[in-house]
Design a binder for these strands. Structure first.
Length: 247
DNA sequence: GCGACAG
DNA sequence: ATCTTGTCGC
């Protein structure tokens, strides 16, 4: 039984958390294009909560980027370590996500997470934070524009418009399905914005949200259900890992 | 001061 | 995020 640990020096207050963001944001690598789309592996991460039972469940699902078939997956269940505060989402999600990533039987390749990277009040959202802590290339694909503004992209899939913080482009509003509300893509770490957009399109052949996000969402919800039912007394933790059979 | 605000 | 059934549409 392994414990979902919290990184050393994890903040206990909002003030400390903002200070951590201010200190770490300088480590975001913005000069790399990142891996090419539809090649190698892409991993989706997501987290589900049961605040009443103080439970959090994270999932990491590795897909073959070309076929979008599941290659491997892992989950981790633990205690909620931070409340949801707009701008501080990373402190709520990252401990469990790191635990799930650690349990993968193979390298994750590019990581796709729910939420934002550089599109953030202090330019250090979840995707950037996760990237800096792991060194992995990471992008963020969010379902809502947060506090940012954008012009409506053309109705066709593939159309996009700048996501703006004032006049600064912090991400892209990207149409992944004809006539459907766009998703909001931003750079996390070690990936360019254009490449992040290309990856997002490669991951959305059928649905508005990336296959990575859909798979990880379904898996972490299932892990949470099972944890809420099964015996999870005291500080006991559950973890599972699975690898697709090589064919 | 008030409201908005990724998940 | 989460509470929640059926239902309209491709």
């Amino acid at each position: 039984m392994t414990t979902v640990g919290v990184p050393a020096g994890w903040p206990a207050t909002e003030e400390e958390a903002r200070a951590v963001q201010d200190e770490l944001r300088g480590r975001v690598a913005r000069d790399e294009p990142g891996p090419p789309p539809a090649r190698g592996r892409v991993t989706g991460v997501d987290v589900a909560y049961d605040d009443d039972r103080d439970l959090v469940a994270a999932a990491a699902v590795v897909l073959d980027a070309a076929t979008l078939e599941v290659v491997a997956e892992a989950t981790a269940v633990g205690r909620v370590s931070f409340p949801y505060v707009p701008g501080l989402l990373a402190f709520r999600e990252i401990p469990a996500v790191l635990a799930a990533l650690d349990r993968l039987p193979c390298p994750p390749g590019l990581v796709v997470c729910d939420g934002y990277g550089l599109a953030h009040p202090r330019r250090f959202g979840l995707a950037s934070h996760l990237g800096v802590l792991t060194g992995l290339p990471v992008i963020g694909v969010a379902k809502n524009p947060f506090t940012f503004t954008y012009d409506e992209p053309a109705p066709a899939r593939g159309a996009s418009a700048a996501l703006l913080a004032g006049t600064e482009e912090v991400g892209r509003a990207l149409r992944t399905r004809d006539g459907v509300k766009p998703v909001f893509v931003s750079v996390g770490h070690r990936v360019s914005l254009d490449n992040a957009v290309a990856h997002t399109l490669a991951l959305t052949p059928r649905y508005r949200l990336p296959e990575t996000t859909r798979r990880a969402d379904a898996l972490c919800r299932r892990a949470l259900r099972e944890a809420a039912q099964g015996s999870v007394p005291g500080d006991a933790q559950e973890a599972t890992t699975r690898q697709a059979p090589t064919s």
